[in-house]
Structure formats: C-alpha cells, structure tokens
C-alpha cells in the first residue's frame, strides 16, 4: 500500500507529477500551502485586500472559497444565476452555493439572478437573438459584466475564479494550435486592473491539477454540483482536456510542464507576442463600465433590441445613466 510521504499512513492520493503521495490530513495541509504559494508568487492579492470569489456551485470555485477562507483571506462570494432550466441546473447550482456558505458558518455572498435583474435568462436570450451569439459566449459576456459591476460596487480589489491547471493548459493548447497570439499574450494567472472601475482577475488554483481540486472537494466533504453545464457538452475545452490527460498518462507531468514552461518563457521574455495596439477605453453611456467601443459597451448593446421587446416579468434592463449597468 502506498504510504504518505509525511507520516507513513496510507496515502489517499498519488500526485505523480510531484512524486508525492499524501494521506488525507497532509493532503488537506498541502493544498492550501500550494495555493498560498501561488498567491504570493504571482502577487495576486494581499491579506488586507477584499477578494470577490466567483462561485458556480462546482468543485473548483467552492474549493477555492474554502481554501481562501481557511487561509484567512477576506472573501465574499458571488453567484450568478443564469436561468439554465435543463435539469434544474441553475437552481441546483445555487443551492450548492447556499448550502456551502451555511455549512461554513454563514459565509457572505450575493446572488445575481440574470432573469430577475434583466428580464431574460441567458438561454432564453440566446434563443431569442439567434444570430451571432452562442449561449456560451453570451454567458461569458454577461458573467464578466456582472462580476465587474459587483466588484466595483463592493470595492473589491480582486475577482478570484476557480480555474485550475487543466483549464489553463486546455486553453493554452487550443490557443497554441490556432496561434491565437492575442489570447496567448494575455493568458496569465493574474490580469491586472486596466481601469479604475475594473478589479484584478486572479486564478489562485492555476497550479493545481483538476484531479487535485476534485480530490480536495471530496476529502473536505464539499457538496458540489457533479453534472456539467448542459451547454458545455461537446465543448472544445473538454476535448482538449481529454487529449492532455492522454498525454499525461503516457508522460507524467506533461500538463504541468506545458503550462509552467509557457509561463516561465513569457516571464523571462523568451517568447513575445505582439501586443494589440493599446485601445483607449471610454465609458459606456448607459452603464458606466469601461469599453473599447464608442457609445454602448458590448453588454448594453446586447440588451438593446430587448429593450423594445422585454417580457413583462420584472425586466430591469440597464437604463441610461445607471452607474451599475
């Protein structure tokens, strides 16, 4: 039986890429230490800064919230209910967040219900608009806008998301295969705030394999949503994760090496991507958030046709002059 390297008790996980097998107790010590190292190494945030944790009800974001809380950081969660009705997905995800927060002594969090706030659920809006916007890209745009708004209103220094190393390696692989130099140039564990109304974006789990975040959630007894988002079925990111896991099973640490050597090469200036010409950000006329476009930002433009046809169930589309959008 494989033994824990620290204490000799039976190991519950063997992290081959670290040549490290650990028991439950030492694994639960190791994970926060790894995250703390990541936060410090990439200068993500300081203990005196407030961090908004984007929680989805999945294992990564709940594990992240749990770890940051254990490390003593000042966190608050935000859950965005997208109104995905298939299999009760959004309601179930929200209940996982609520249960988690309650089980940790009442962690603070906010819920933003997209349908209640803006009049349309994300899938309904995607169906209604038909042209140009797929559900996942709409979802990304809406979530980014809401997170920026909540972070600004609440005075948070950083928005933390649960992206793990597998997520980052899959995106890196996809962008490399397509030579998406703009995306490659921007891919980083930390995206600095480029405007006074934007918070820093940080990924404190980016040095943990997805296997490790899942194991952490299981061992910590975190009740997370097990099903994938119904709209992610067949997503290319999942395909790249599969490919990377095939590589990993043939060549230990392949994922880690792929991602870390990319970060190191960028850090040391060994690879350079042509930065797109710096765009001067203007202010959205409607919501006040920074935008590279003139007039309305992409989020407000998204709702523009719906302003004339919004359903009657309490639509609160952004109004001219609204600060929050």
């Amino acid at each position: 039986m494989l033994k824990c390297r620290k204490c000799g008790q039976p190991a519950v996980i063997n992290m081959r890429h670290h040549r490290l097998a650990l028991c439950e107790t030492h694994f639960l010590d190791w994970v926060p230490a790894r995250v703390q190292h990541t936060i410090e190494h990439f200068q993500m945030f300081r203990p005196d800064e407030r961090v908004l944790v984007a929680v989805s009800g999945g294992k990564d974001s709940l594990a992240l919230w749990d770890i940051l809380t254990r490390l003593g950081y000042q966190t608050e969660g935000v859950y965005i209910n997208l109104g995905i009705a298939d299999g009760g997905y959004s309601q179930l995800s929200q209940s996982k967040v609520e249960q988690f927060a309650a089980s940790r002594g009442g962690l603070r969090y906010q819920v933003v219900d997209v349908q209640e706030t803006y009049g349309w659920s994300v899938p309904a809006l995607a169906r209604h608009r038909r042209r140009g916007h797929k559900t996942c890209s709409l979802c990304g745009l809406i979530k980014r806008h809401i997170m920026n708004r909540i972070a600004y209103e609440g005075g948070f220094s950083a928005i933390a998301t649960g992206h793990n190393l597998d997520d980052e390696a899959a995106v890196l692989m996809q962008n490399t295969l397509h030579w998406e130099t703009g995306y490659l140039g921007r891919q980083s564990p930390v995206l600095p705030a480029t405007h006074p109304r934007l918070a820093r974006k940080v990924k404190p789990l980016c040095l943990l394999y997805e296997r490790e975040t899942a194991a952490y959630a299981l061992v910590r007894g975190i009740d997370y949503i097990y099903d994938e988002c119904p709209y992610s079925v067949g997503a290319t990111t999942l395909f790249y994760k599969e490919l990377l896991n095939q590589l990993e099973s043939r060549s230990v640490a392949a994922k880690q090496n792929f991602y870390l050597t990319f970060l190191k090469a960028k850090e040391e200036g060994l690879v350079k991507f042509v930065e797109p010409a710096e765009v001067e950000l203007s202010t959205c006329e409607r919501c006040g958030q920074p935008t590279s476009a003139q007039g309305l930002c992409a989020f407000c433009r998204l709702w523009e046709p719906e302003r004339q046809t919004a359903p009657e169930n309490g639509s609160e589309l952004p109004a001219a002059g609204d600060v929050d959008g």
């Binding site: 039986m1 494989l2 039976p10 190991a11 519950v12 996980i13 063997n14 097998a21 439950e24 989805s56 009800g57 999945g58 294992k59 990564d60 974001s61 995800s93 649960g162 597998d166 997805e210 296997r211 899942a214 194991a215 299981l218 061992v219 997370y224 949503i225 097990y226 099903d227 994938e228 988002c229 999942l238 994760k241």
Partner: peptide, 25 residues
C-alpha cells in the same frame, strides 16, 4: 465513500466507485 490512491491493490469483493474529475462549473 472514501478517497483511495489508485495504487491500491483491488481486494476480493471490493466495490470501487469512480468519480469523474471534470464536472460542474
């Protein structure tokens, strides 16, 4: 219901449940 290392030897009458690593979110 308890996580075990995959290096364990399967015993007679063992019931091993496998959890997908990719899920949720």
């Amino acid at each position: 219901g308890k996580l075990i290392s995959e290096d364990n030897i399967g015993q007679e009458n063992d019931v091993i449940t496998l959890i997908a690593v990719v899920s949720g979110g």
